[in-house]
Every structure is written in structure tokens, then in C-alpha cells.
């Protein structure tokens, strides 16, 4: 039995953190994985071996089934990824049929421009705050709502609900919530005798507004994933810690957190990828402003340079830089977690 639930520790797991975590799932909680019973132990990275070579008909059928999806992905994901790099060496303006090769001048411009530092700082603050806070708060909420509390199911639903609402709608709605003259926040602050910061005009506060709105909307995701992981954890370890008289903090640090490590790894990557890509909330709330670039992030700059300033070449340069940064950060995360797992 130990072995059985042992694997279950990785109920919610990042497979790339090690082969063993692939054998997921013994007891599936209510939100647990599908079809837990009778799972092929080779899932997910080892499909059943080829017992007999497929017949020619099977091969043709496979091609027919796969080709539409492959064509779409090549045409609209991989082709533009490469094409984007080509465009970054041109002065293309998005509407003219012609683009001139300009060498690395866009990159030189990027390195020298005054707003580059601002955009990078904004992106860093926004991304770091959203990733760390939504993971910490998501875990805290999961721990809270994993307890036997009356009414927890309603609160669970409430926490998750904002995640399914469109970012644009949330952005529009929260622009009014933060309205420094007539919004909800200024009214609540006024009730305790504090003057509302000007969320619309002050760049720092605008970034705060956008960041907290994003966290409010997306907290439900980290919460749900952590909750599923908690429900799939090893009850026997909790009991052992209980019997040993471990303090709550030690129990959390020594028993729970290590079990949640694959989940934490998975979330750190998915939340990072999605928060780096935020466009709708920023567009709806600030259009990248105030003062031109108060909440301008890399993704927003790609849009702004390409479609507002009509400098698609420069936009493509920013996009390429962003992609490289993402690649490096993800690689560092993978390494970091690998090391941690071995230590």
C-alpha cells in the first residue's frame, strides 16, 4: 500500500521533474484525474510498445487524422515564430507590401532606448508579483478550504469563479472599482479616512491596480490546482507527523511542502507563461499608460509598436527578445527544480 499511495504524492505533478512522477494517481479525489482506476503504468511518456508494426492502412489513417492539426500548428505557430525573427531585422510597417532589411538596427535601438528599461521593469514587477502572490495566496486558500469548515464549498466556487470570466470584462469592471473619484476602493478608503491614490494617473499605482486585478482574477487557478494536490496527498504522513507531535509549521514545511513540490513546479511554469502574456486586462484598464508607458509590459509593447505606432519590425524585435527571455527563464526554472529534487 505504501508504494501505491507513494506515487500518489505526485497526484498533481509536473512530469518533466522526473520520470517517476509520471506514474500518477492512486486514490483520486473528487477533483482528481480521470480514469484513475486501471491506469497504464507507462503513462504518460511511454505509450504501449508497438506489438506489431502497423499496417499500411493504419499508417495512412494516422496521417489523415494528424495532418489537419499539424498543418494548423505549423502555419499559425511555428511558421510565425520563425517569420517573426525575420521581421525583426526589417523596418516593416504592418500595412505596406514591402519590408526593407535593416540588419540589427532594431536590436541596437532596443538596447539604447530609454523606455526599454521601464518596460522591462514593469514586466518584471508584474510577472514576479503575480506569480509569487498567486501561488502563495492560492496555497494558503487551498490549505484553508481543505479544512472541514461549514460552507467551504460555496467559498471554493466563489474563489474559482473569477478565473472563468473574460479578462477584458474584468478589466473594464475593475477600472471602475479603482476609479479614484467614484470607485469602490476610494469609497472604502474614505471610510477609514485615507485619501485614494490616483490609480489612473500615477504609473506606480496604475501598475498596482493592474497587478492586483490580475491576481484577483487568476487566484482561482492556483487555488484549484493546489487543492487537488492536497487532496491527493498521503494521509499517513499527516498522521505520522501528528503522532510525532510535529508543530504546525514543521508539519507544513517538512511534510506538506515537499509533497507539493511537483505541483509548485508545474504552477511556477504555467502561471509564469500566462502572466507574461497578459494583454486583455492591461488593454482594458490602462492601454499601457499612464504617461505613455506606466503599465507597458513586453507583450503590450509588441502590440503597441506593431499596431499603434505601425512599426512591425520593431514590434517583432521586442517579441523575439521576449521569447528568448522566456526560454531562458523556463530553462532556469527546470534546472532549479531538478536540483532541488535531487538535493
Amino acid at each position: 500500500m505504501g508504494a501505491d499511495i507513494g506515487v500518489d504524492a505526485g497526484g498533481v505533478t509536473g512530469g518533466s521533474s522526473g520520470g517517476s512522477s509520471g506514474h500518477t494517481s492512486g486514490p483520486a479525489g473528487p477533483t482528481g484525474p480521470a480514469g484513475a482506476a486501471g491506469r497504464d503504468p507507462r503513462v504518460p511518456f511511454g505509450p504501449p510498445p508497438l506489438r506489431r508494426a502497423g499496417s499500411k492502412g493504419e499508417w495512412l489513417l494516422a496521417a489523415a487524422l494528424l495532418i489537419p492539426n499539424l498543418v494548423l500548428l505549423f502555419l499559425f505557430v511555428y511558421r510565425p515564430l520563425v517569420d517573426n525573427i525575420r521581421l525583426s531585422f526589417t523596418d516593416w510597417n504592418i500595412s505596406s507590401p514591402q519590408a526593407n532589411y535593416v540588419g540589427a538596427s532594431n536590436y541596437v535601438e532596443w538596447l539604447g532606448r530609454a523606455d526599454t528599461r521601464i518596460v522591462l521593469t514593469n514586466t518584471l514587477i508584474f510577472t514576479f508579483a503575480t506569480v509569487v502572490l498567486s501561488m502563495v495566496l492560492g496555497l494558503a486558500l487551498a490549505l484553508l478550504l481543505d479544512q472541514k469548515l461549514r460552507g467551504r464549498n460555496i467559498v471554493r466556487s466563489m474563489v474559482f469563479a473569477p478565473f472563468v470570466i473574460s479578462g477584458a470584462a474584468i478589466g473594464v469592471a475593475f477600472q471602475f472599482v479603482f476609479d479614484p473619484s467614484f470607485g469602490l476602493i476610494q469609497d472604502l478608503l474614505a471610510k477609514i479616512g485615507v485619501a485614494s491614490p490616483n490609480f489612473y494617473q500615477r504609473p506606480g499605482w496604475a501598475l498596482f491596480m493592474v497587478t492586483s486585478t490580475y491576481i484577483w482574477k487568476n487566484l482561482g487557478y492556483t487555488f484549484v490546482i493546489y487543492l487537488a494536490a492536497l487532496q491527493a496527498r498521503r494521509g499517513d504522513l499527516d498522521e505520522a507527523a501528528e503522532i510525532d507531535g510535529a508543530s504546525r509549521w514543521n508539519h507544513f514545511r517538512k511534510v506538506l511542502l515537499p509533497q507539493l513540490r511537483p505541483t509548485t513546479f508545474f504552477l511556477s511554469i504555467t502561471v509564469l507563461l500566462s502572466s507574461v502574456q497578459v494583454f486583455d486586462i492591461i488593454y482594458a484598464m490602462t492601454r499601457g499608460g499612464p504617461i505613455g508607458n506606466g503599465t507597458m509590459t513586453l507583450v503590450f509593447q509588441v502590440y503597441h509598436e506593431t499596431f499603434v505606432n505601425q512599426r512591425a519590425g520593431y514590434g517583432a524585435t521586442v517579441a523575439t527578445v521576449m521569447f528568448l527571455i522566456l526560454l531562458v527563464v523556463t530553462a532556469v526554472q527546470v534546472r532549479f527544480m531538478d536540483k532541488g529534487a535531487r538535493a
Binding site: 494528424l66 505557430v77 511555428y78 510565425p80 517569420d83 523575439t320 521569447f323 523556463t330
Partner: peptide, 23 residues
């Protein structure tokens, strides 16, 4: 082929929009 399809998950939409828009 599976890896080829899966790797598309790592490419953010925002990086592909310029070229897709052109197309």
C-alpha cells in the same frame, strides 16, 4: 510527432500575432 505538437504549448500567442496578422 507528439513532441512537435506538444512544443507548440511553449510558444506564446503574442509572439506569433504579427506574422499571422500579415498572413
Amino acid at each position: 510527432l507528439f513532441v512537435v505538437i506538444l512544443a507548440a504549448l511553449m510558444v506564446p500567442n503574442q509572439i506569433t500575432v504579427i506574422s499571422n496578422f500579415a498572413l
